[in-house]
Every structure is written in structure tokens, then in C-alpha cells.
Design a binder for these strands. Structure first.
Lengths: 329, 329
DNA sequence: TTGAAAGCGGTACCAT
DNA sequence: ATGGTACCGCTTTCAA
């Protein structure tokens, strides 16, 4: 692998000059530049990022911390961030925390040790000392710690939209699924929905759910119909849960949405492929990743920030598991 | 951030000694070690990986190149690789190629520039000069270039299993979906299925499919039933396609699996959540990622290799979109 | 406009 | 058992 020295030798100049043409700064005679460029091409030279990072104390790497890429919501986020970051020549060091503090700390350590230019973190522990004492800029995803840069979506409104859709579709005995208690993001949507339900003239009950995993969702769905067989509307905490409920409803011979309406949350790609296609609240995952990247980039470049806590809008996607409002009598 | 010099100063020793305790090699007096360790803790010291990588000409980073993490098959692969790699202290630089040569080359460049310890690549271009001339070890995923280390699954057998399942379920007019022509992996399963179909006493036709995208799968499904309304068995090229077909069949009021059997390929996590749950051929994605990581690790550590082209087994997962064989008359 | 040289933070060889 | 130091490849003063 050719080094800057090799190029300097081949071009008959010093490494300082090569560095200048490389970074396009300082004075360098046009003719010299040409010679150097020719030498670089001849030797197929490209700069060693590691050496660069060492001197600059900053790499072109961005740390991306996610709970679990296997959860269909996150790949989109990751892509949004990646695509935006790539435009500026940054790359991702990527890690899954599984919501475990230990893994999260290990990755933060790795990020520091590799001198990342910045960090995007979807974490349950935004208040860690490791974040506040971090020398690298951090943008939080799905969490909005006081004063810290963050990108999230409007969960409260999302929850309201979900509940309204179910109510407009005239369900009268509604089950509201409360997501994991330790996820503020799940509680926001829960509270939004709760608010609407309380003001409406409907019966409803709440089921606590421990996790978003497929397995748990499946047993939750069975339990739901066992405990509340008369339920005619379900507001799920995410699309996975909704899919499990839909699945169980169909298995019990119910017609959807005639006998029971179901609404999810997130709008993961496969929601459209369910049968019937799932009505849901869309979080703009890709755009959230993109916005987080943009915000981080601005911080890295020390550009002025207009807003530091970005909240993305959420939309109701009416597909086939909710009834149309205008069918109303 | 504390450096090795700071630690040396605080412990009253030279940097050489600190380096020795850091790497646990060379002689160092027990008492000295204690002092150094104390100093490290007091200063909250951790070594700068960038400096290390520069000297060693090798980082603790592994490049992972995937077509698109948004495709549900890949997150599992990534997790398998990550989990295994983490056990040995390696981290991932991660990139999506979108099957575009340009992006792939850019990432390979990045990997080299960051002195990755190795690369795991799911690529359509395994024969690139960039790979053969690569100084870093590479393990290919889903491709088996002659002589190169690789991990794949047995697509031919997978295709056969799929066709056999459909035939055992007594479908007589079968539609076989041929996946994208440029994906050898799709062609393997296609050929396996074709072989079985040709030897069975059934009618069948083949539909060419351009891509694995949701959108394309949906229009393909409509076209399928328009062209071959009498189809009573569909062998899809992956689970996304199968979901689209299932969806369309249900929309047309067909009973699954009574009127029509459908089998997918891959066994992505959400296949189980479809209704009816999708029968499919499982590729052990997580384990494939894990095996790729193990193989790469062995190469990195220059351990002897027993096999260099690992092929993982594939299994038939009978759920509810295929009929049981023993219902046979 | 160009070059010499001092680092960036580690590792490892060579002395002692 | 420990220390001095050259070096990894690049950037950036400082002089010329």
C-alpha cells in the first residue's frame, strides 16, 4: 500500500506538499500539483484514514447505537442515517445494545476509542454520565433529554390519532395495549390514546405488555381474547403486536374490520403485506434517521443550530383493519 | 482524555512499562503492575485504538457489506456476525451497497483506509479485482467464488424441498416464481424446484420476477392470478413474494391452503405472523452470519482451516399455507 | 511555493 | 524488570 512518502518520492516533492494537494489547502504551484496528482494515480494512492484520525483526533466514523437491528423499525432509521452521512463522507460503526447497559457502555467506549466524529444513539439511558461527559457530539433518537440534541416523533399525537381512528370506526369495547413501561416512547402513545378514550363514550380496558417481541405479542394476543372476548377494537402499541392480534382474531374466525378493528403503530414495511393490510400510525423512520444525521453533521461542523430537539410528525395510515368513518349512519 | 504518557507519569514509570501491562506481555514486576493499574483507573485511562491501529497496521474493526439492511433477511445475518465478532472484541463498520457497484467500491475503499482486520461481504461482484487484490481477509456471504472463503446455504436443496412440499400437498397446477436472474442464490433454489417439478406429474409454469421489492411482488401477484387463475400451488422465490401472493389470494377470496398452497423461502421473522402463518424454507440467517464471523476470525488469527467454503443446511418449515402430506387419500 | 521536523498515542526493539 | 526511542502515516507550524 502506497504511502504519502512513496507519492512524494515519485513526484519529487516533500510529503508536506503532497499533503497540501491532498487536502487542497496552502499554496502549491499548479505544475507541482499536476505532478503530484499523477504520482498518486500511478501508485493508486489513497490516504490512510487511521493516520489522519490520529493526528486530527477525529475520524470520519460515526457511532450508531441501536437497540436491535432485528426489530423492523430500526433498519429504516439506520438507512436514513447512513444515506445522509455518506453524502458527507462519513461511515458508520454500528452496534446493537439489546437495551443492555453493559453492551451500551461497551459500544460507547468503542466509539470513543475510535475517535468517532459523533454519535447517534437510540438509548434508554440518555442520562448516563457517559453521555454528558462525552467529548463527541451526540444526537439522541427517540429520547429527548433536556437540552440535548434529539430527534423523535410525536408519540402523544400518534396515540391520539390511533384512538380517534378506532372511535371513528365505531368500536365500543376497546382494548388498549400499553407498551413496555420502561419505554417513554411507548408511554407517550399510550397516554395520547388514553386521553382520547377517556373522553369518548366507550368502554375500554388496558392490557400491560412486557415487551415488543414476537413471542410475547403472540401470547398477549391469546390472553387478550381469552380475557375480553367481546373486544371490538384494539389499539396496539406497535405493528408487531397488532400483527399478533390480527393473527389471533383471524384464527378465531373473526372478520376484520367488520367484527373487530385493529390499529398498529410504526408502519413497518411488512404491515402493508398483512391480510388485511394493517391500518397504523406511521413514524417516518427513514426520515428520522436522516434528520438525526443532518443534525449531527451540523453540530460536527459547528454550524448554527435553529432547533436542537426535532420532533417529526406522525400520520394515520388507513388501510383495511379499520372501518371508514363515512360509513357512519 | 488521558494518554499512556499521563499514566506513565502518574505511576512513575515509562510508557514502555505501561504498554506492557496494557498488553500483558513482557516482564513487569507485580508491584509495578499494581501501581500502573491504579494509575490507569485513577485517570480513567483507556487506550487510543487509532494509535494502536496505526502502528499495528490493523484495527479491531471488521467491514460488513450488505445489499440492504432494510431487507428483513439481512438484519439477522448482521446480528449473527456482530454477536460472534464482539466476543473477540471486534466491531463493525457497516455499509449497504444497494447492489450498486459504485457504493460497494466506496465501502471497500473505506474498509481499507480504516485498516479493517477483515471483511464480510454479501456481494454480487465477488470477482472484482478489489477483492482478489485485497490485503485483508474476506469472507463471502451467499456467494462461493472458487477457492475463496465463503458461507452460503444449500439453495438447490432448498428449492427441492419447497417443490416437494407443494407436491406432497397435492397441488396439480403449480406456478414457480423465478427470482431475479442476476442473483445466483435465487437461481439455485429455482433450479432445485424446477428439477423436482419436471419429474413430477404436474402442470407447472414459470414466472420471471425482476426483483424482491414489496412493490414488484405485489404487481407480480396480481399478474399471476390474472394469467393463471387455476393455479393451486405457488413456489415463491422468497418470503416477501410469498406474502404478496398470499395476500392477493386471500383478497380474491381463495382459501389457503385448501384452494391454493403457497410456500416461501428464507423464513424471515414476520413469516410466522402472517395469516395463515407461512410455510417456508428456512435459511439459518443468524447462524450464517455467525459462521461467517467465525471463519473470518480463524483466518485473521491464522488458525488452520478445515473447510473454507461452508454450506449451511436449509429446512422445510411446515406452517399453515401448505397441506399435510398424511391427509393423503 | 516548498521543505524540515515535531507531533498525534501507541508498540516493540534494544539496552541496561 | 525497566527505560529510551524509532516508527506507524499523516498534518501543520515554522523557516527558507
Amino acid at each position: 500500500m502506497a504511502t504519502i512518502k512513496d507519492v512524494a518520492g515519485a513526484a519529487g516533492v516533500s510529503v508536506a506538499t503532497v499533503s497540501r494537494v491532498l487536502n487542497d489547502n496552502g499554496y502549491v504551484h499548479e505544475e507541482t500539483r499536476t505532478r503530484v496528482v499523477a504520482a498518486m494515480e500511478k501508485l493508486n494512492y489513497y490516504p490512510n484514514e487511521v493516520a489522519r484520525s490520529l493526528y486530527k483526533r477525529e475520524s470520519r466514523l460515526i457511532g450508531l447505537l441501536l437497540p436491535d437491528i432485528t426489530n423492523p423499525f430500526f433498519p429504516q432509521l439506520a438507512r436514513g442515517a447512513e444515506d445522509e452521512l455518506n453524502r458527507e463522507g462519513y461511515r458508520l460503526i454500528f452496534g446493537n445494545s439489546d437495551e443492555e447497559l453493559k453492551k451500551e457502555l461497551e459500544y460507547l467506549q468503542t466509539f470513543k476509542q475510535n475517535h468517532v466524529a459523533g454519535i447517534i444513539a437510540a438509548t434508554n439511558y440518555p442520562d448516563l454520565d457517559e453521555y454528558s461527559g462525552m467529548n463527541h457530539p451526540v444526537v439522541f433518537l427517540d429520547r429527548t433529554p433536556e437540552g440535548a440534541p434529539s430527534v423523535s416523533s410525536d408519540g402523544h399525537t400518534g396515540g391520539k390519532l390511533a384512538a380517534e381512528a378506532i372511535i371513528h370506526g365505531r368500536s365500543k369495547r376497546i382494548t388498549l395495549l400499553r407498551g413496555p413501561a420502561h419505554l417513554p416512547t411507548a408511554q407517550d402513545r399510550f397516554n395520547g390514546a388514553l386521553e382520547v378514550l377517556q373522553q369518548a363514550e366507550v368502554d375500554f380496558q388496558v392490557i400491560e405488555t412486557a415487551s415488543f417481541s414476537f413471542k410475547d405479542a403472540q401470547s398477549m394476543a391469546k390472553e387478550l381474547f381469552a380475557s375480553y372476548p367481546e373486544t371490538d377494537g384494539v389499539i396496539a402499541s406497535n405493528d408487531i403486536q397488532a400483527a399478533a392480534v390480527l393473527h389471533e382474531a383471524l384464527r378465531r374466525g373473526k372478520n376484520v374490520p367488520e367484527d373487530i378493528q385493529i390499529i398498529g403503530y410504526d408502519d413497518i414495511p411488512q404491515s402493508e403485506l398483512l391480510f388485511p393490510p394493517l391500518s397504523t400510525i406511521k413514524q417516518p423512520a427513514y426520515d428520522m434517521g436522516k434528520e438525526a444525521a443532518k443534525l449531527l453533521l451540523r453540530i460536527i461542523k459547528k454550524q448554527p443550530l435553529t432547533e436542537t430537539a426535532i420532533q417529526m410528525p406522525v400520520t394515520y395510515i388507513g388501510r383495511k383493519t379499520t372501518r371508514k368513518e363515512d360509513h357512519d349512519a
